[in-house]
Nucleic acid binder design. Structure first.
Length: 419
RNA sequence: GUGACCGUAGCUCAGCUAGGUUAGAGCACCUGUUUGUGGUCCAGGAUGUCGGGGGUUCAAAUCCCCUCGGUCACCCCA
């Protein structure tokens, strides 16, 4: 607190146990689900040439003003990744893997923003990307994976919002129609929305301001501007979701912040967080992005889920709570520590979660530490035990009390107690 | 980038309105009551440049200004 140099930088924090372990379990659970669907892990670099991200479009704030960019010692313009889709499509363009190419990722992204609840400058996302087919069933698969993951976490209050912004031609035609309409109603819009209208008209649809909501509700709908192809794609996606019994609602005003989306776009929101940050995940199709990165035109679809926000939702729904204990066994040794040294090592080799006391502390202090550690069992070694060739096993949590066990049957006894 | 609120012990906070002797509480920590036994109780102990700088004053945690930091909201997004 004294000196800002000795604090984590603004918008970052240290994840310590149990939060650190909760994060790991979260990623493990995700990895299990996606790997069963044929997705392989990819670990792209955390920074790229800035052009890679600029390909995402200059209409997005994420690239316009939120990038951590700098010049490296070689004079290259580098940016910390604000998201991972761009890196992955760049990797695709670079390596040209065989298709379809299905990958998943987990790791931090960086955006230079004012931090607030559920919004950090370094934040973790997990996600998948699938390139190589424009089959709407792939859209469904990607959405379903996210949905099943939320279910696996135990979340029940998640909503799937679905939309189609059509092909890039549809999108362009729609933007014209929308801009025309909004220009006419410009005076009714908030000043902020009027600015957005110039930079990125689609995003006006997303405004939550009261004065804008009325204007937006009467705006032409994207769904009326879809080409036949886009329409049938969108219908197939919806049919697929219905077959899988995944509930969704079509939101014609759903506009994602990244410009590269075409056709299907979707977002997951939670009802359990009443704060502003209720968007816990989202994604869509980006059929034009690979070509943009210099690869042959290749369709793609993917999603990203915010790890921190999803865990906030878990907290609100009291599910996927953190680990209960770090330790199973705590070794107390009042004979100098050699016995503890050896037995602790043995128990660890046998798969138990074990810690011990260090320093020459009294039995009372060691027992206190054993209790505080959360361990279920204390193993006590004192002069008496050494003489008799036993150890005392004391139950710290239940009613079992304690008993002396011959040194050579400790492992069997502990296995029985701890299951 | 804009706005609001908040910075006092490791943590949560009281004290500030109407400035006045060594700045408090609870939790946590350590020790003891019990020289081989934790969790409850009791007793004792350690811990603060009252975010930083400047000003007003005989006197500032308290009033004023600046600054740094934090939180939340807008914006944007996960």
């Amino acid at each position: 607190m004294k000196d800002s140099v000795y604090r984590a930088p603004k918008g970052t924090r240290d994840l310590v146990w149990p939060d650190s372990e909760r994060r790991r379990s979260f990623i493990d659970l995700f990895a299990g689900i996606v790997s069963r669907a044929g997705y392989a892990e990819i670990v792209p670099p955390m920074f790229e040439h800035i052009e890679v991200f600029q390909r995402l479009g200059d209409g997005t704030d994420v690239v316009r003003k939120e990038m951590y960019d700098f010049e490296d010692k070689g004079g290259r313009n580098i940016a910390l990744r604000p998201e991972q889709t761009a890196s992955i499509v760049r990797a695709y363009a670079e390596h040209r893997p065989s298709l379809p190419w299905k990958v998943w990722y987990a790791g931090p992204n960086f955006r230079y923003e004012r931090a607030q609840k559920g919004r950090f400058r370094q934040f973790d996302q997990v996600g998948v990307e699938a390139l190589g087919t424009d089959d709407p069933h792939l859209d469904v698969e990607v959405i379903a994976i996210a949905w099943r993951f939320y279910e696996a976490l135990g979340l029940r209050q998640v909503n799937l919002l679905l939309n189609s912004v059509g092909t890039s031609q549809d999108r362009t035609r729609y933007i014209e129609a929308l801009s025309g309409y909004l220009e006419k109603r410009k005076d009714d819009l908030s000043t902020e929305a009027q600015e957005t209208l110039v930079s990125n008209p689609l995003r006006v649809l997303d405004s939550k301001r009261n004065e804008d909501i009325g204007v937006v509700s009467e705006a032409p709908s994207i769904l009326e501007h879809l080409s036949d192809d886009a329409n049938s794609h969108f219908n197939r996606v919806q049919e697929g979701l219905e077959k899988l019994k995944i509930p969704y609602s079509v939101e014609p005003n759903l506009v994602r912040g990244l410009d590269y989306y075409v056709q299907t776009t979707f977002e997951f929101t939670t009802e359990s967080i009443d704060a502003a940050q209720d968007a816990i995940g989202g994604g869509g199709r980006y059929d034009g992005l690979a070509a943009e990165m210099g690869a042959p035109a290749t369709p793609g679809v993917g999603f990203a889920l915010g790890l921190d926000r999803t865990l906030m939702a878990c907290e609100a729904e009291k599910t996927f709570i953190g680990p209960e204990q770090l330790l199973q066994i705590y070794v107390v040794d009042t004979t100098g520590g050699e016995n503890s040294l050896v037995i602790t090592d043995q128990l660890r080799q046998n798969g138990f979660k074990v810690d011990r006391s260090f320093g020459d502390r009294s039995m009372k202090a060691q027992m206190k530490a054993a209790d505080k550690s959360g361990a279920k069992i204390a193993l006590i070694i004192g002069e008496d035990e050494v003489e008799k060739g036993v150890v005392t096993i004391r139950d710290l949590r239940g009613e079992e009390g304690q008993e002396e066990i011959a040194s050579d049957s400790i492992i069997a006894n502990l296995e029985k107690r701890l299951g």
